[in-house]
Design a protein around this nucleic acid. Structure first.
Length: 212
DNA sequence: ACATTAAGTGATT
DNA sequence: AATCACTTAATGT
């Protein structure tokens, strides 16, 4: 099994790690598969071991707006929140890359909360850092100009793929940012003239970014 | 060579 | 910034 301790350094109690090994099951998703869909009750918490997850929010008009990426060594706070409150999911999570996570049944959350100090701490830190990310996502939608939001999206996507480019169409980006394809094309063209990106069909490269 | 899909662009609101 | 209408470019068959 994967080395949980090194991926989740906050979980440092040997007993807890052993319990995770015992009750958690390793689950894999292929790129593009739905992990959580809107309206479903979430019955497991994902500790992401490999790959990345893309989290989208339904805007009510049937459009889905990109929120943020979850990277390995993280868990998704929104699913945590839904989980502990037994609420239906108001988000959709898609496998951004092939990914693998340890799935923890929800009944252990409370148990471990009482039992393990490091688990409490992990939950706290998770909530804190994810709350910050959601706030940033909100800020970027509410206050950032679209060109900055666009570049941020591309960079974030490139980062979770560990590359300095992404493979996507302008149309898909427009859908994720809830704008039109023409606007994306024009902003990208401008960004290209300023040397911030390089464009080709189905591909956007960020020259100033090193592959990890 | 042709059809299809992606991207670029001017004009209008 | 959104939409429309149209053009041009790239790619698949």
């Amino acid at each position: 099994m994967t080395d949980i301790a090194s991926l989740f350094p906050l979980l440092n109690e040997p007993e807890l790690l052993q319990e995770i090994e015992e009750v958690g099951s390793m689950i894999e998703f292929k790129e593009g598969e739905d992990i959580i869909t809107t309206g479903k009750y979430i019955k497991r918490v994902p500790l992401l071991v490999k790959g990345a997850i893309r989290v989208l929010r339904n805007d009510g008009d049937g459009h889905e707006v990109f929120l943020y990426f979850v990277n390995r060594g993280q868990t998704c706070a929104v699913s945590l929140a839904c989980c502990v409150n037994h609420k239906k999911s108001n988000i959709r999570a898609v496998a951004e890359t092939d990914c693998m996570f340890i799935s923890i049944p929800i009944e252990y959350l409370e148990k471990w909360n009482k039992k393990y100090q490091s688990w409490r701490n992990f939950m706290l830190i998770t909530y804190q850092s994810r709350f910050d990310e959601v706030m940033m996502a909100l800020d970027s939608i509410a206050f950032l100009k679209l060109d900055e939001r666009l570049l941020r999206y591309i960079e974030g996507k490139a980062r979770v793929h560990g590359e300095n480019y992404i493979n996507i169409t302008h149309q898909k980006i427009a859908e994720e940012l809830n704008t039109s394809r023409e606007v994306v094309s024009r902003l990208l063209k401008k960004a290209e003239e300023e040397g911030e990106v390089e464009l080709s069909r189905n591909k956007i490269t960020i020259p100033g970014m090193l592959p990890i």
